[in-house]
C-alpha cells in the first residue's frame, strides 16, 4: 500500500510533468515544422514583390495611389519551450528555443502584410516596420507570457507607370 502511495506521488511529482514535456515537445515540434513549410511555400508565391524598409519612397517609383497595409500574428509558447527557457533563465545566454518561434512570427507577419498588399492590387510596399508587444500575463502573479503579437506594417503603392 505504501509502495502504491509512493509510486503515485512519484508519478505526480515527476512523471506527469515529464509526460507533459514530451507531449508538448512533439506537438510543438510538429506544428513548428508545419508552419515553416507553409511560410516557405507562401514566400515563394510572393517572391519578387518589392518589400523595402526605406522610410521614403525610392525615386524610381511613380506612385499612383497608396495605402497602409498591416499584417499581424499572435503566437504563444508551448510548455516545452517555456520550461527550457526557464532553465536558461537561471544561468543566462541565448534562449534558443524562443528563436525559431519569433522567426516564425516575423516572417508570418511580413507575409500577411505582403499578401494583403498583393490582394488589393498594389505593386510594392515601402517603409516597412515591425513591432512586437507582449500580451496579457499567463499567470495570476504577473509572471509568464500568454503570447506575443508581431505586427508588420508599411505603405503600399500602386505604380502609375513602369518602374525605371
Amino acid at each position: 500500500m505504501e509502495d502504491t502511495v509512493n509510486s503515485f506521488s512519484l508519478f505526480f511529482n515527476y512523471g506527469l510533468p515529464i509526460l507533459l514535456l514530451v507531449f508538448a515537445y512533439f506537438i510543438g515540434n510538429m506544428i513548428e515544422k508545419g508552419h515553416f513549410r507553409n511560410i516557405r511555400k507562401r514566400e515563394d508565391a510572393v517572391h519578387g514583390f518589392p518589400v523595402v524598409s526605406f522610410d521614403t519612397m525610392p525615386e524610381e517609383w511613380r506612385a499612383g495611389s497608396s495605402t497602409m497595409v498591416t499584417g499581424s500574428i499572435v503566437i504563444s509558447l508551448d510548455y516545452f519551450k517555456r520550461v527550457i527557457a526557464g532553465l536558461r533563465g537561471l544561468i543566462g545566454g541565448r534562449i534558443k528555443t524562443y528563436e525559431p518561434l519569433l522567426e516564425r512570427a516575423r516572417r508570418e507577419a511580413l507575409l500577411r502584410m505582403t499578401e494583403s498588399a498583393k490582394e488589393q492590387g498594389y505593386d510594392a510596399v515601402f517603409n516597412v516596420r515591425l513591432e512586437t508587444s507582449r500580451l496579457a500575463n499567463a499567470r495570476r502573479d504577473g509572471n509568464g507570457t500568454a503570447g506575443v503579437e508581431m505586427l508588420a506594417f508599411g505603405t503600399a503603392v500602386k505604380f502609375a507607370g513602369r518602374i525605371g
Binding site: 515537445y25 516545452f80 527550457i84 528555443t97 528563436e99 522567426e103
Partner: peptide, 11 residues
C-alpha cells in the same frame, strides 16, 4: 536568426 541547435540537445 535561429540557432542551429536541436531543442533536445539544448534541453
Amino acid at each position: 536568426n535561429v540557432s542551429d541547435v536541436h531543442p533536445l540537445v539544448e534541453a
